[in-house]
Computed example of a mutant assay.
Amino acid sequence: MVKKVLVIEDDEAVLIMVSEILQNENFDVITASGGIRGVELAIENCPEVILCDIRLPDIDGYEVLKKLSRDNRYLRGPFIFMTALRERENYRKAMELGADDYLPKPFSPKELVEAIFSRLLKYSRIESNLDQKVKEIENQLNTKTQNIHNEVDENGSFISPASSKNEILVKQLKEKEMELVKETFNAIETNNTLLDLRNEINRELKNPALKKQSKQILTDLKRKTKKHTMLWNNQTIFQLKFNQAYPNFISKLNTRFSGLTQYEIVFISAHLMGLNTMQLSDLFCISDDSVRKSRYRVKKKLGLKKEDDFFSFIHALNIGKRNHE
Rank of each mutant, 00 (worst) to 15 (best):
E20Y: 05
Y62H: 15
N276H: 04
I21S: 08
D101A: 02
A187H: 01
E136D: 12
L260P: 02
H315G: 01
P78T: 03
F117A: 07
D71E: 09
T143H: 08
E40F: 07
L231I: 08
R125W: 12
G61P: 00
A84V: 01
E307L: 13
S160E: 09
L141D: 07
M178N: 14
L97W: 01
W232T: 08
F313A: 08
Y296V: 14
L272A: 09
A245T: 00
S33V: 04
I159S: 07
S258Y: 02
L173G: 06
K211M: 11
L221P: 00
F27S: 08
S290F: 02
N24I: 02
D10T: 00
L210R: 12
P78D: 14
N139H: 07
R322Q: 08
N243H: 08
K206Y: 09
N199A: 10
S294E: 15
D53K: 08
K165W: 02
E154D: 06
T143L: 13
K171W: 00
H315F: 11
M82A: 10
M273S: 06
F185E: 09
D101C: 02
L221W: 09
F238S: 08
F242C: 10
L302R: 13
K215F: 05
E48F: 01
K105E: 06
V14D: 15
G35N: 06
M273T: 00
R322H: 12
E96Q: 12
A84S: 14
M278S: 12
T255E: 14
E87I: 01
V291G: 07
W232V: 12
P47Q: 13
I188Y: 05
E177F: 01
R223A: 09
T184S: 05
R70E: 13
K241F: 04
E89I: 06
E154P: 00
R86S: 15
D100P: 13
L210M: 07
K241C: 13
H149Y: 01
P47W: 10
L280C: 11
L68D: 10
K227G: 07
M273R: 01
Q146S: 11
F310A: 06
I36D: 06
I237G: 00
R203C: 11
D220V: 12
I168E: 15
Y246V: 11
Q140R: 12
T145E: 14
Q172T: 03
N318S: 07
F249W: 09
F242D: 05
L120A: 06
A99F: 13
S269T: 04
V134H: 00
I159F: 00
N26S: 13
L180C: 07
L112W: 01
N24V: 02
L103K: 01
K299T: 05
Q23Y: 01
G98Q: 05
S312G: 11
F257D: 04
S124H: 07
D196G: 03
S281Q: 09
L253P: 03
R70D: 10
S118F: 15
E12P: 00
D71M: 13
D71N: 11
P161C: 10
R256E: 05
K144C: 04
R70V: 03
T83S: 10
G34V: 03
D282R: 03
N142I: 08
I237F: 02
K321M: 12
D309W: 01
G77P: 14
R125I: 15
E264W: 05
A209Q: 12
G156F: 14
L22E: 02
T83Y: 09
M230Y: 05
G320R: 03
